[in-house]
């Protein structure tokens, strides 16, 4: 990856906070190999939010877990803040953990049911060696940040006493309290009620702006990604098929899969496009071997798509796409 790509002119000058090169992950399950992630490279700069979208099972969660060193990649490298963290262990890994935090999908399951909120928030501070005299202040500050005020009213509660939205605030607070520079959020609101989702999304945006965090958001809801991420990466069967500024990508999708994805998102207005989706079959009957992974479902598949797997190509300074069609159409 020698080309310097950027979401916009400003970012090109910055070094990425986290950079993944050629990540792969194969799971061995009962004699069968599942290539969950086939080839993913990405970069996220400080203060930038990258969205990852794609069908269920395309490898979004696995990618995120590798970035956080919760899963060891089968191949590839992860560079965080200039250091190779792919095989970190022990104290060095602990130092990385304080820098890279995760916001969980299911708030009802993300907190130890026996721990009070105070204990849940103090635990990371203890583990990361923050002196005890600072704990109270930091817990207080982080609860203010996630709007659980006054903090004293929340500290002694247990998870079962909180609503989903409140729990997700605690989960976010727990992720922010070690003072990370990278936040990964895997479907952070999909388990929440519609009326409280907006609150969590706004908190995520605010925290990123105020603390200058790098963020990776995972969702299969493009509308949500558009709300929180300026740049988006589309995955299909473990590979990146398209990447670019979110709004451009939605307004003018280059990859046929992205087109189908964008067309499939319903909008909350009666007047909307109800035309047949430009995609065939389903993920399960699309096991194409060789050539483009999407060709079994692609309405534009050509001869070359069977013969040659397309690689990610830069089509504008900010956009990349892996499709043979690019250049012949558009």
């Amino acid at each position: 990856m020698s080309d310097v790509r950027g979401g916009d002119g400003v970012r090109t000058a910055m070094t990425p906070l986290i950079k993944a090169i050629g990540l792969e992950k194969t799971f061995r399950t009962r004699g069968r190999d599942v290539a969950a992630v086939a080839d993913v490279s990405l970069e996220v700069a400080r203060g930038e939010a990258l969205g990852i979208v794609g069908e269920s099972g395309c490898g979004k969660t696995t990618t995120a877990r590798m970035l956080l060193r919760l899963e060891d990649p089968s191949a590839g490298k992860i560079i965080f803040d200039g250091t190779d963290i792919t095989t970190l262990r022990g104290a060095a890994l602990l130092k990385f953990r304080a820098q890279a935090q995760l916001v969980f999908q299911n708030p009802f399951d993300a907190l130890n049911p026996r721990f009070s909120i105070r204990r849940a928030l103090a635990e990371p501070l203890n583990n990361f060696g923050v002196p005890i005299r600072e704990h109270a202040d930091r817990i207080d500050a982080v609860l203010h940040r996630v709007r659980l005020t006054p903090p004293a009213a929340w500290l002694d509660r247990r998870p079962h006493e909180l609503s989903g939205g409140q729990l997700q605030r605690v989960v976010l607070a727990r992720a922010l309290i070690p003072g990370p520079t990278l936040i990964v959020a895997d479907e952070p609101v999909s388990m929440l009620d519609v009326s409280v989702r907006a609150g969590i999304l706004n908190l995520l945006r605010e925290a990123r702006d105020a603390l200058g965090l790098a963020a990776v958001y995972i969702s299969h809801d493009l509308a949500l990604i558009r709300y929180v991420c300026e740049r988006t990466m589309v995955m299909y069967l473990g590979q990146v098929v398209e990447e670019g500024p979110t709004k451009e990508l939605i307004a003018n999708p280059a990859h046929p899969y992205t087109r189908a994805l964008v067309a499939a998102v319903p909008v909350p207005h009666v007047a909307q496009d109800r035309a047949q989706l430009p995609i065939r079959g389903s993920l399960s009957d699309a096991a194409a071997i060789g050539g483009c992974a999407f060709r079994g479902r692609c309405p534009h598949a050509m001869k070359i798509c069977i013969e040659l797997a397309p690689t990610l190509r830069t089509i504008t300074p900010t956009r990349r796409v892996a499709c043979h069609l690019e250049g012949t159409m558009s």
Binding site: V194, S195, R197, A198, L201, N202, D221, L222, A223, L224, R226, Y227, I250, V262, V265, V267, P268
Partner: peptide, 12 residues
Amino acid sequence: AFPDLYGDDMTL
């Protein structure tokens, strides 16, 4: 309370 794929950039 809902993000919209095409709406303008209002705060939810």
